[in-house]
Amino acid sequence: MTYTGYLQLEASERYGKSVLSDAYYNGVFKISRPTYTEEGLPLVQLIHVGGGYVDGDTYFTQIHVRKNATLAVTTQASTKVYKTLNKQVEQKSVYKLDEQSQLHMKLDPLIAYRDARFIQKTDVYMDKSAVLFLTDIVTPGWSKDGELFPYTCVTSKVKIYQNEKLAVYDHLRLKPKDDVRKLLQLEGNTHIGSLFFIHPNVSEEWIEKLREELSSFSEAHYGVSILPIPGCCFRILAKRTSVIEKIFAAIETFIHRTIYNRSAISWRK
């Protein structure tokens, strides 16, 4: 199958250092030349050269982080989904995390414009000792008649398998026709953010401390809870992207201070 955009990345450990050992891309996907953060961790920026996602587009991303390696991936800009009248845009991602490996994925928001239909399926296969940091934000795009939710449907399915067993299955579908702003759904908000952090050191006590750390964000509507595996899911509803990004940054700072005893990854954006 030919994809509108295809990307394959592999990180490995060489003499105690993580390196981008393989990179292949095709179509509208490109990557920046990997830079190395202060901690010596390879940071890759994903670039979409086409400007936005349109009708019938298909995307596939495969990332493999090998034993003891660490990789940080971000996007260069937000993902924009435009009018999709005939066939919805499909984006599939498969991440494989070997023993003691780490993948830090910080994605810019997905912006869905008028009549956009988008589905993303993310499958993560990780070892028990591996670490995953993954964020996702969905926002409605600007519309000239001022409509709050111009898009048709945005679906996201995230499945996280640990040692071949399904541990986390997050299924989100935003369909504005069904009045997504009501209670139990977005509860008057327009933006939604999700953050998953899977790490062997995440415990109830750690989450309790995270809650204390975030208590200054009293105006934000969020929740956090421990997953069936050591890790947490953080979910937030807001009316602006900046509210979500600020709290995500605070969580990242907390993670890096408490778990790695250092400052957060400088994403260079």
Binding site: Y169, D170, H171, L172, R173, L183, L184, Q185, L186, E187, I192, R211, H221, Y222, G223, V224, S225, C233, R235, I236, L237
Partner: peptide
């Protein structure tokens, strides 16, 4: 269609812990 979640409800379920 299986398993479509309700984000607001999930947050309420998480907040219940506190």
């Amino acid at each position: 269609d299986f398993g479509i979640g309700s984000p607001g409800l999930e947050i309420a379920q998480m907040q219940h812990e506190t």
